[in-house]
């Protein structure tokens, strides 16, 4: 499997097959985000298309040192979706000849949270199997560490270290992609 670095390099070289690899890997997540933001399938497919076309056109702008390819693609998709929502609203307003109103502020909050959620979910899926399993039991089944130790048969100390390392990876990824492609600013936190 090509790493983000290799994909970025192939993209910069103008290799369309690399875009296809990115689409196979991340197209479903981009479409999911667009669908969540726009609430309609046709617009979501349009935005997915626009996102990958923009990724191709702007491929020199992706820096794998700054964040992941998924984070970058979701950042593009979010902007395209928000643009579309705004112009749809503008269009509605023009049609209704209502004077311009600034869209509500909390509108910009929601897309970021969905992006963050997807980035964290992606990182969770990349964790070593034991770490992922332990965290899933903590997140989705709401189990305490001793309960997780019981369910998995792992020693309590191992459960704790899986959870600590897993959480550290998730937080690092959230901070990196959020700072690189989102609207959040970098915040210093202690290394775990």
């Amino acid at each position: 499997m090509d790493s983000d670095e290799e994909l970025a390099e192939r993209l910069r070289d103008g290799d369309e097959k690399a875009l296809r690899v990115a689409y196979d890997r991340h197209g479903a997540t981009v479409l999911y985000l667009a669908q969540r933001l726009l609430g309609n399938r046709a617009d979501a497919e349009d935005v997915t298309q626009l996102t990958f076309v923009a990724a191709w056109t702007g491929r020199d702008g992706f820096d794998p040192q700054r964040g992941t390819m998924l984070g970058w693609l979701l950042g593009i998709a979010k902007r395209k979706a928000v643009d579309r929502l705004r112009s749809a609203e503008r269009y509605k307003r023009v049609a209704e000849t209502v004077s311009a109103q600034v869209p509500a502020e909390d509108e910009t909050e929601r897309p970021d949270r969905i992006v963050d959620r997807l980035v964290v979910a992606d990182e969770l899926s990349r964790l070593p199997a034991d770490q992922r399993r332990t965290l899933e039991l903590a997140f989705f089944d709401d189990l305490t560490h001793p309960q997780i130790a019981e369910v998995t048969g792992l020693p309590l100390g191992t459960v704790k270290s899986h959870i600590r390392r897993g959480m550290a990876s998730l937080r690092r990824r959230w901070e990196v992609d959020g700072a690189a492609f989102g609207s959040r600013s970098t915040r210093a936190s202690r290394a775990l």
Binding site: A28, T29, Y32, R113, D116, R117, L118, V120, A121, D122, L124, S125, L135, A138, F139, F140, M167, L170, R171, W174
Partner: peptide, 13 residues
């Protein structure tokens, strides 16, 4: 916050 985000899913797979 990260734990919340993690618990909100979705399962990308």
């Amino acid at each position: 916050h990260v734990a919340e985000l993690g618990a909100e899913g979705p399962d990308l797979g």
